[in-house]
Simulated assay, not measured.
Amino acid sequence: MTPVLIACSHGTSSLEGRAAISAVVEQVRLLLPHVAVEEAFVDVQQPEIDDVVQATSPRPAVVVPLLLSTGFHTKVDIARAVTDAGSRAVATVALGPHPLLADLLAERLRDAGLAPGDAVVLAAAGSSDPAASVDVAEMADLLRERIDAPVSVGFAAGAGTRIADAVAAARDAGATRVVAASYVLAPGFFADVIARAGADAVTAPLAPDAAVATVVVERYLAAAASARATAAA
Rank of each mutant, 00 (worst) to 15 (best):
A169H: 11
E145L: 13
V153M: 09
A131D: 14
V167S: 00
A125T: 05
T176C: 02
G160M: 12
A168W: 01
A159Y: 00
A164D: 15
A149G: 09
V178N: 10
T176Q: 04
V179D: 04
V136D: 11
A180V: 01
A170S: 15
V151W: 01
A115R: 10
A124L: 05
G126F: 05
D129A: 12
E138Q: 14
S133W: 02
A166F: 00
E145I: 04
T161C: 14
D165H: 02
P150S: 08
L122D: 00
A119N: 02
V167P: 00
E145P: 05
I147M: 07
D141M: 03
A181N: 06
A140T: 06
V136Q: 10
L185V: 08
G160W: 03
G174E: 10
R144T: 13
A157F: 01
Y183T: 08
V178E: 09
A157M: 02
D135S: 13
G174W: 06
S182R: 05
D148Q: 13
V179W: 03
V184G: 09
A125S: 09
R144L: 03
E145G: 06
V179F: 04
V120H: 09
V179M: 06
S127V: 05
V178C: 09
S133V: 04
D118C: 09
F155I: 02
M139W: 02
A137L: 05
A124P: 13
V136H: 10
P150C: 08
L142I: 01
A173I: 03
R177A: 15
V121S: 10
A169D: 15
V178W: 06
A157W: 03
V153I: 15
R162L: 03
R171A: 12
A132L: 06
A149V: 11
L142G: 04
A170F: 02
R162G: 13
A170I: 02
D135N: 15
G126K: 02
V179P: 12
D129E: 14
V178I: 11
A140L: 04
G154P: 08
A149C: 13
V167K: 00
V184S: 11
A166T: 04
E138H: 08
A124E: 03
A180P: 05
A149H: 13
A157V: 01
D118M: 12
S182E: 10
